[in-house]
Design a protein around this nucleic acid. Structure first.
Lengths: 244, 244
DNA sequence: CAAACTTATCGTCTTTTATACGCTAACTAT
DNA sequence: ATAGTTAGCGTATAAAAGACGATAAGTTTG
């Protein structure tokens, strides 16, 4: 039996309001089949590359971006996860002959801006609201769901949120991101206090401009402060913590 | 090019003093080669099984145990992670012809007791002190290190510690486990307070017997209380927590 | 048998962190 | 000028963390 190893990436972006994921239309797609059109970016692993290398390659092909936050998330190894028409499509698309495809799911976090959006749409990809997605090709909906679960967990455990924000951001933007991803309301006054007390934010000289309210300070994420704090503390996180 | 997918398991146990890992001597081992003798339990994935199924199968073969805590941890996909003599050994041992083996690392937690130890040693496996391990076959030392890192993280984030303890245990045993794995000193009075306040421990009717000091109460882990607490709380764990 | 030793268990005090929420500041839109 | 909005500061209370004193209940030692 012939088995193949592939990588699929759930690429997330945040536009200030809602969480987006990058989807691409699959080629050789025949509208008369029952196959879904949209899929996550992914590809077969090449002979001479590691999985992370494959993931970075796929990401660059899909977004034109390097230096993106990327992390392995789960493996989807059901022998029948692609079969029948889906398996035929894969063999035709890749020009191979395989009976089984085990795929490794990665999730990526991208700083959405006009440049990023231009790049990705030029390559035939589209940013879709995560909440609006009903079905995807193959088992990609399940892969996306797994990625979302991991994202929620990571957002609470490590400062990955900053990977979704521009280099300079307001505390409100950070709060909105947490609100959107976790689906909760957060008291702005306590959130500021907590996040500022952490010492992970460095104020910049800039402020918001042209907003219909008091302009907010822009901050940057201080990675060094975070790394320093990591060394100093061991956290017994499963017992006690933050309620919103 | 011919590639294979395998699973390797780092199986941990705790004897009350130190953390142990289950190692097996590889067969077809020729002492005159430079290959290391001890390896982690592992095997190639079968055509019709998923990765978790393969991991459980390997675990049962190595320990004779079912219902063991088992979790996927990382993937080792360097194209050259096994090559040369090591690759020859794999092909001879499995009776296959492969050029590349990608392996998925699992880690397992086992409740060490006389029965477990008898089972495993009967099957040619041995429990080795984690700290004493210098070298292992192939890249298994790296896999073990990765598993240890994940174990430390998980011990702080979720109640996996109880998977390493017998059903009934003393608070001191739990504390010793944390001390040993994390390599820290913990104040017993505050540890008890914290762990009891969590509400995750249920006292049993039993006490220690024959110890040279005041006998301690035995407790069991209350899984339901933990699950209930999980639902109620969202934790922003990366900012603040426990210092020891 | 008494004293020494060891760990269990309870309790107190102080400091830090979480959470609720009142209030003013600074900007735009009308 | 006024209304609407979010920024940003502050206060008060409750909860949790962390340091550490003291007593209890066993075994081991002399």
């Amino acid at each position: 039996m012939n088995q193949s190893l592939s990588v699929d990436c759930a690429v997330f972006g945040f536009n200030g309001k809602s969480l987006k994921v990058l989807l691409i239309e699959r080629r050789y797609y025949k509208p008369d089949t029952r196959l879904d059109k949209l899929k996550l970016p992914g590809a077969m692993i090449l002979d001479n590359e590691t999985l992370p290398e494959a993931a970075y390659r796929i990401l660059e092909e899909a977004t034109g971006l390097r230096n993106v936050y990327l992390k392995q998330m789960d493996i989807f190894s059901d022998p029948k996860r692609v079969a029948g028409e889906e398996l035929e499509w894969i063999n035709r698309y890749h020009g191979i002959q395989t009976d089984r495809v085990v795929t490794v799911g990665y999730y990526a976090l991208v700083k959405l801006d006009s440049r990023t959006i231009t790049y990705t749409t030029a390559k035939g990809a589209q940013w879709v609201d995560v909440d609006s997605i009903q079905r995807l090709a193959m088992d990609h909906k399940a892969i996306l769901s797994a990625a979302l679960t991991v994202l929620c967990r990571e957002m609470l455990q490590s400062p990955v949120a900053f990977e979704l924000l521009p280099r300079k951001f307001t505390i409100r933007a950070l709060q909105n991101l947490y609100s959107a991803v976790l689906g909760i309301d957060i008291d702005n006054r306590n959130f500021r206090k907590k996040i500022l007390a952490s010492g992970f934010l460095t104020p910049t000289a800039e402020k918001e401009q042209g907003v219909a309210h008091k302009p907010a300070q822009y901050y940057t994420f201080n990675k060094n402060a975070y790394k320093k704090a990591l060394k100093d503390k061991l956290k017994l996180g499963f017992i006690n913590n933050w309620r919103y």
